[in-house]
């Protein structure tokens, strides 16, 4: 197992380099360092000297990948790519082009993101499993058919609709929670309530349908027939045997997304004024802040790779038949 993890971590290095090169190339295909300088310096009274000075000061005066003015290794090291990207591998995210410490901002913004993402994930999981079990239990009955129709309807509605109608109905008409905003500590509860409810409701359709399929697949297996033949009550069959086995694909799917929860939800956070990481990257792209973009892409890649490794490990935990070698 340990060797496997080490091997997977080592595989991650070329992936990270590749993602970095790609992000770098894509960003600078759209924005030149001159554009970045102008975006940061504002629109009035900007001179070419000020642009040049900004580039020098922020290290954007170097060539992108290859420096023909240098020789040997310096041709590669005295470039924008090398100077800006290497520190990321040491988890030094540096300072944004606007002058803010990125690591500090990430640390500060990940908590509000988690305050929404974690309850949405776990409560949502509980709700979806319960609903899926219900449909599976009454499979092929009008309850199952109604449940599936409801799921399809819920899946077909845009998340933006849930947000706007939730804010309108619960925040504005019923006046039960604040429409938007955030506070620290326990005071955050009233602000995360509505986005969490919306996040859960928005996920019921897709989640429940998927889990229903898994449950139905499991319920068709021999061990379930055996359990029923032994005279076990259907509830026991479902909760003791089916659920346990169906959890393998469910849990492994969940484990893969856990690290990505740190990155938050863009639309939900934007509409509810939650100061999370969801809008951090988008804001940075709009403000042409390459330092933040590359840091967030790097972080996203690492979290994604971590998720995949954790998925592999979780397989061995929930299913003893699987061994990693």
């Amino acid at each position: 197992m340990f060797n496997y993890i080490i091997r997977r971590v080592l595989y991650a290095i070329p992936i990270l380099i590749g993602v970095n090169v790609l992000t770098f190339a894509l960003f600078f295909m759209v924005n030149s360092p001159d554009d970045m300088a102008r975006a940061h310096l504002g629109t009035k009274h900007i001179t070419p000297q000020a642009v040049a000075q900004w580039k020098t000061q922020h290290g954007y005066d170097k060539p992108l990948f290859l420096n023909p003015d240098n020789t040997g290794i310096n041709m590669f090291t005295d470039t924008l790519f090398y100077t800006k990207s290497l520190s990321l591998f040491l988890f030094d995210f540096g300072v944004s082009d606007a002058g803010r410490d990125i690591g500090h901002d990430i640390k500060q913004r990940m908590w509000p993101s988690l305050a929404i993402a974690l309850p949405v994930l776990f409560i949502g999981l509980l709700v979806n499993i319960t609903f899926a079990m219900l449909m599976a239990f009454f499979r092929a009955s009008y309850i199952d058919v109604s449940g599936v129709i409801l799921c399809v309807v819920l899946m077909s509605i845009s998340s933006l609709f849930y947000i706007i109608s939730g804010q309108f109905l619960i925040g504005k008409i019923l006046r039960l929670v604040p429409i938007s905003g955030y506070d620290t500590g326990w005071h955050a509860f009233k602000f995360v309530l509505l986005p969490v409810v919306i996040g859960i409701v928005g996920g019921i359709g897709a989640g429940s349908r998927w889990y229903r399929t898994i449950f139905l697949e499991e319920m068709g297996k021999d061990y379930v027939r055996t359990a029923r033949a032994k005279g076990l009550a259907e509830v026991k069959v479902l909760f003791k045997h089916v659920l346990k086995n169906a959890l393998i694909p469910i849990l492994t799917g969940i484990v893969a997304v856990i690290p990505l929860l740190f990155l938050g939800s863009l639309i939900l956070e934007s509409f509810f004024g939650i100061p999370g990481l969801g809008s951090y990257t988008i804001d940075a792209i709009q403000q042409q802040d390459f330092a933040i973009v590359r840091a967030m892409v790097f972080l996203g890649t690492i979290l994604y790779i971590m998720g995949l490794i954790m998925t592999d490990i979780s397989y061995t935990v929930v299913d003893p038949r699987i061994r990693i070698s």
Binding site: F168, G171, K172, I179, S180, S270, G273
Partner: peptide
């Protein structure tokens, strides 16, 4: 000063007196 990126929540909160 509170960060409000979307105009709709800002407007509704203004109408509520916040």
């Amino acid at each position: 000063f509170l960060l409000e990126k979307e105009s709709l929540p800002t407007w509704n909160k203004f109408l509520q007196g916040y």
